[in-house]
Design a protein around this nucleic acid. Structure first.
Lengths: 216, 216
DNA sequence: GTTTTTCCTTGACGACTGTCCAAGATTTTT
DNA sequence: AAAAATCTTGGACAGTCGTCAAGGAAAAAC
C-alpha cells in the first residue's frame, strides 16, 4: 500500500467518524427540538422556559446549551421541526380524490379532525407567526412555512377546480388566508368550548370552497 | 328644613363625593390602561412587565397595584381600551360613500393606511387574540371584540353589495375572516419590509371584495 | 486497561419578574 | 390650621429566567 493510499484510507476513516459524530449530534438536537415543540405547544411562547423544556425531555436543563448556542437557536430549530410535521396534511386527500364532492368532503373532514386532534400544535403555529411580528430572528422561517401552507391549500383548491371543470376564482394568497382564517377562528371557538359555532363553520365550509372556484 | 330633607341633602352630597372619587379612580385606571396598551403594542404580551408599563406612564411601578388587583386585571382593562379605539375605523367610510366604486376605493385606502399607521396596535390585537388560546382569563373580551370587528366588516360588505344592487355572497363570518386574513398577512409582510407583497395585496383587494358579493 | 474525548449533571451567577408594604407626599374634610 | 383620607413612592420579598462553568459519567480510541 502506497503512502498516498494509506493517507486516503485514514482520511476516509476520520471522515466517517466525523460524520457519525455529526449525525449523533444532529439526532440529539432534533430530539431536543421536538421536546421544545411539545412544550411550546403546551405553554405558548411567552411561558416556555428552558427548564420546562428539559423536563419534557430525559435530560437536565444544562444540556440545552451543549447542543444549542442559546434559546433563540433552540426555538428556531423547534419551528423547523413544526414545518416537517404540518405542511402536507391534505396531500393524501388531494391525491386519491376522484370527484369534487369527495375531495370537498374529505377536506372538510380532515380540516376539523386536525383542528381537534392537533389543536395545541396549531395554536403554537399562530403564536409563533405572531411572535415574528415582534422579533425578527425567526421571521424568515415563519415566512417560508407560511408559503408552504399557502402551496398546500392551493393544491387543494386548484385540484377541486379541476375536478369541477372550473377555474379558481381567487389567487393562491386569497384562497389561503380565507381557509386559514376560518381555521384560526374555528380553533379559537374550539378551545373556548363553543361547539355550536364549530358546527356552523363546518356547515359553511363547503360553500366557501365553492366560492373560491368559478363553476363551469 | 325637615330632618328628612336634611338627610336627603347630606345623602346626595355623599353620593356626589363618592361619584367624584369613583370618576377620578376610573380616570386614573384608564390612563394607566392606555399606557399598558402602548407598552404591549411596543413589546408584545410576552415581554411586557409592570415596571416597563410604569415607565411608559408618569408613575412608579407600585401604583399599578393600587388601581389594579393584579397584572391580569390590568391587561383586561388594556384590552378593553383597545376595543374602544379600533372597531369603528371604517364606519365613516361606509357612511359617506355614494357609490360602490368610491366605497371600495376608500375602504382599500383606509385598510392600508391603518395597516402602516397603527401597525403596532394591530399586531398587539393578534397577539392578544392568540394569547387567549392559552389563557382563559380574557378570552371573553377577545371573543366580544372579534364579534365587533366582524360586524364592522359586515357593514362595509353589505353596504357595498347594496350600492352595487347585489347581495353578499358570503356569510358575515366568512367575509370577516377573509378580509382579516388579508390584513394579517399584509401586516406580517409590512413589518418584514416586504413592500412589493403589500403592493400586490393592495392590487388584489378590490377583486376579493367583489368576490364577496354577487353582482346583480 | 488506560487515556482521551465526548456527553451530561449540578449548582451558581446576576438580572428580571409580580407582588406587597411601610412610609412619605398630597389632597380633602373638618 | 389641624386632622383625616387618599394617593404615590421606592425598596424588599420570594421566584423564575437564561447563561455559564466545574467536574463527574460514559463512550471511544488507543
Amino acid at each position: 500500500m502506497t503512502d498516498v493510499a494509506q493517507e486516503n484510507q485514514s482520511q476516509r476513516k476520520l471522515d466517517k467518524i466525523a460524520r457519525r459524530q455529526v449525525d449523533k449530534f444532529d439526532a440529539r438536537r432534533t430530539e431536543l427540538a421536538v421536546a421544545t415543540l411539545h412544550t411550546l405547544a403546551e405553554l405558548g411562547y411567552a411561558r416556555t422556559s428552558l427548564r420546562e423544556i428539559a423536563q419534557n425531555s430525559e435530560f437536565s436543563h444544562g444540556v440545552l446549551h451543549y447542543y444549542f448556542t442559546d434559546k433563540r437557536d433552540l426555538i428556531i430549530e423547534a419551528v423547523r421541526q413544526y414545518e416537517r410535521v404540518c405542511v402536507t396534511k391534505y396531500d393524501e386527500v388531494v391525491a386519491h380524490a376522484t370527484s369534487a364532492q369527495q375531495l370537498c368532503d374529505e377536506f372538510v373532514a380532515m380540516f376539523f379532525d386536525t383542528l381537534v386532534q392537533d389543536a395545541t400544535l396549531h395554536r403554537l403555529w399562530y403564536d409563533l407567526r405572531n411572535q415574528s411580528l415582534y422579533e425578527e430572528y425567526f421571521r424568515a422561517d415563519v415566512l417560508e412555512i407560511d408559503g408552504h401552507r399557502e402551496d398546500m391549500v392551493w393544491r387543494v383548491v386548484s385540484r377541486y377546480a379541476e375536478l369541477r371543470d372550473g377555474t379558481p376564482a381567487a389567487s393562491p394568497g386569497t384562497a389561503y388566508v380565507t381557509l386559514d382564517g376560518i381555521f384560526q377562528r374555528a380553533l379559537l371557538h374550539h378551545l373556548a368550548g363553543n361547539t355550536e359555532t364549530i358546527a356552523a363553520l363546518r356547515a359553511e365550509l363547503p360553500g366557501v370552497i365553492d366560492l373560491l372556484v368559478t363553476s363551469a
